[in-house]
Structure formats: structure tokens, C-alpha cells
């Protein structure tokens, strides 16, 4: 049986933790086997590598906010659509529309599929971001 309330709570806990820069809570949301897939390279990123990337982003950027969150729980997971707003260390304010799909096991996220448009990376990180 689906437990929507638990899925919604997990979803909020995860994104609120990133906004607060709360690494401990963020880590507790991931199952030990968690992997993160991105639509731009189709590769599964291991748990530790993804957590390190998120932590670096939380430290580097002055602010990260997930706005216009629209969440749909489904059997075994949830999908959240949001606009990620960041304020970079150079005070650039960027945004990116993201679709975040999570599959959940034992109350923790075990697999993530994340979709966004890398063609808009300059609008997100700034024209001098140096990203290709």
C-alpha cells in the first residue's frame, strides 16, 4: 500500500536540507545503495560522489532554493517538479527548471533520475561559469 504522507515528508526533508545546507539530514535521506542518474550523461553517479557534489554546491553558493515545488507521490516513489534558484559566490542569480524522480526503499531514496536542460547552463550558473 502506498504511503503518500511518508513520501511527501521524505521529499520535503531532502530539499529543505539542501536549502539549509544540512549535510547530515541530506545524507540520512539516501539509502546505502543510492545512485543518481542525470539526463545529460545517462550515467549513474554513486552515493558518495553525489553527496560530495551537493555539499560542494551548498558551500559554494550563497543560496539554493527549490521554488514552485509540485510533488506527486506514486507507488514506490515520487516526482517533484521545481525551479532551482541559486545565488552564486559572485552574486549571480540563476535558475533552472528541474524534474526530479525518486524511487524509495525503506523510507530512504535509493534511485534518483534528474532531468534538466544543459542548454540553459549559463542562465543557471552565469555566463562566466566556465562550464561547457
Amino acid at each position: 500500500m502506498r504511503q503518500d504522507w511518508n513520501l511527501l515528508q521524505l521529499c520535503d526533508r531532502f530539499f529543505d536540507a539542501i536549502e539549509r545546507g544540512d549535510h547530515e539530514t541530506l545524507e540520512s535521506c539516501y539509502a546505502p545503495e543510492a545512485v543518481v542518474w542525470h539526463s545529460h550523461d545517462c550515467l549513474y553517479q554513486p552515493r558518495a560522489e553525489n553527496l560530495a557534489m551537493l555539499e560542494a554546491g551548498m558551500k559554494r553558493n550563497k543560496k539554493m532554493r527549490f521554488r514552485n515545488r509540485r510533488v506527486h507521490p506514486f507507488e514506490g516513489g515520487f516526482v517533484q517538479q521545481h525551479t532551482l534558484h541559486i545565488t552564486t559566490e559572485n552574486d549571480f542569480e540563476g535558475k533552472m527548471d528541474v524534474c526530479f524522480v525518486a524511487y524509495v526503499r525503506d523510507g530512504m531514496i535509493s534511485r534518483i533520475y534528474e532531468y534538466f536542460d544543459t542548454g540553459q547552463i549559463d542562465r543557471f550558473l552565469g555566463p562566466t561559469s566556465g562550464r561547457g
Binding site: H40, V98, Y115, D117, T118
Partner: peptide, 8 residues
């Protein structure tokens, strides 16, 4: 709502 990657 459709999410594509124009970089591809």
C-alpha cells in the same frame, strides 16, 4: 510538462 535537454 515535458523536460528535454537541448544540449543533446
Amino acid at each position: 510538462d515535458e523536460y528535454l535537454d537541448s544540449g543533446k
